[in-house]
Design a protein around this nucleic acid. Structure first.
Lengths: 243, 243
DNA sequence: ATTATCTATAGATCTATAGATAATGC
DNA sequence: ATTATCTATAGATCTATAGATAATGC
């Protein structure tokens, strides 16, 4: 179990609860429907947060509801099961991220593969730094095979990795990028770029560096891109690096 | 909850259980004590496995006991609380890994920093590939600050990262390694090297590549080292990479 | 009549403990 | 007497549902 204290700040109300919002009962008026943020949306926000922090199993429907200012049964009213609110939360998260950080854009079409890859990786790093929800969900779901992983992979990841794979393949074809296995390049990029930010608490605990500060966030982003494209050697190893 | 089916194969026994082992009751004989693998050890093995797969919260003491062929109450007899068997499991894992993959060895003292770093990273990648338990536990505990993370960091990670930090610092001093923030270099190495293997199910689900096969495991290790040290560009970018 | 909310609760776990049982040590 | 194991269970959750309540729609 995970207490609500972890997740969102809120003003305690009554003796049981942490309600920030005392929801109106009854059918909402038509004018209201458009303006007010719906309970469904509040629950989804809360769910994205909770699942990212703790993973599917450790999250309770009670926690999701509490952080959205509703009673536990509302989760089941709007989403039937915990499994279904999880799916809806991922879909919502992917929609949000797709809008904020578009990866497959035509504007990049005329760049050479390496320039294109740099833009893609830079965007991906920025996304990972500014919103760790997706990375966190992937570390929770991605370490063990299972139906939830299969679902995310088929529905989102395969498409999401496509621009990377394509660009790497093109770069290898033009001879600009080393002829390494494409999957290895893509996943090394993803790991190095996304994982470091989502392991920010480790960086804090071991090196005392706060990655939530804009300065260190950018500093790390520059370092990661620099290492990925150019390696960490000052003068590149003439005989082909670590062989 | 997580069913026992996920974790270890075992022969069902009776109608309730999955016992592979019907433990002798009573005080063990002195001769027996030395030879037989103790219940304590079996429980620890099972716990390492379970916590690595599912994380602290999702694991039940019943699952740990079942996969060790014992009744649930044995966990509490030997370790008092779930928290304590978790700690004991991490300690056991770190002892094992420290023996199998020594990082801070005198034998490397005479190498130059870059050669030393290559050996270190190569070992770390091999460790991450052959035993993902530690990486998995880190993704479960490392994404959210908390007492368990602080405990691991203070007791193990700080020491474990020292050889990397030292060698990177030395390499920067000799001018062989780029003058990037040391924490950024170390954590980029860790992320790229360890995380990819522990996200093997993602690689399988998105690219259909099985990282448990020796060939792909080595292939990925070579790629990661190559990229980290020499970058992914075929001809290193003369104007300083991704700026 | 429809929609959204709440309270209450059944049924299924999970942690931790109490107490019985079975073996060896001394 | 000591040690290791088991069964049973108290007390605390957690998911999901049933049923009451309060609002608007038509």
């Amino acid at each position: 179990m995970v207490t609500a204290e972890d997740t969102l700040k809120k003003t305690p109300n009554r003796k049981t609860g942490n309600r920030t919002r005392w929801a109106r009962r009854g059918r909402p008026s038509l004018t209201e429907t458009a303006s007010r943020e719906s309970s469904r949306e509040l629950l989804l926000k809360s769910a994205i947060n909770a699942f990212a922090k703790h993973g599917f199993e450790a999250v309770t429907t009670g926690l999701i509801a509490e952080n959205a200012g509703m009673s536990q049964s509302m989760v089941h009213y709007h989403f039937k099961t915990k499994e279904q609110i999880w799916r809806a939360a991922i879909e919502q998260l992917m929609r949000d991220l797709g809008e904020r950080f578009p990866l497959a854009k035509d504007e990049l079409k005329d760049l050479d593969p390496v320039s294109r890859l740099k833009v893609l990786v830079r965007r991906f790093v920025k996304m990972s730094a500014l919103d760790v929800s997706l990375s966190r969900i992937m570390v929770h779901e991605g370490t063990t095979p299972g139906p939830r992983l299969t679902w995310i992979a088929d529905k989102f990841l395969k498409q999401g990795f496509e621009p990377f794979d394509e660009t790497v393949t093109a770069g290898i074809a033009t001879g600009q990028i080393k002829d390494l296995p494409v999957y290895a390049v893509t996943h090394t990029i993803i790991s190095a770029a996304a994982m470091t930010y989502c392991l920010a608490p480790v960086v804090e605990a071991t090196h005392g560096v706060d990655l939530s500060a804009a300065r260190t966030m950018d500093e790390l982003a520059d370092s990661v891109l620099n290492i990925l494209f150019d390696g960490l050697l000052a003068r590149p190893d003439p005989d082909g690096a670590a062989r």
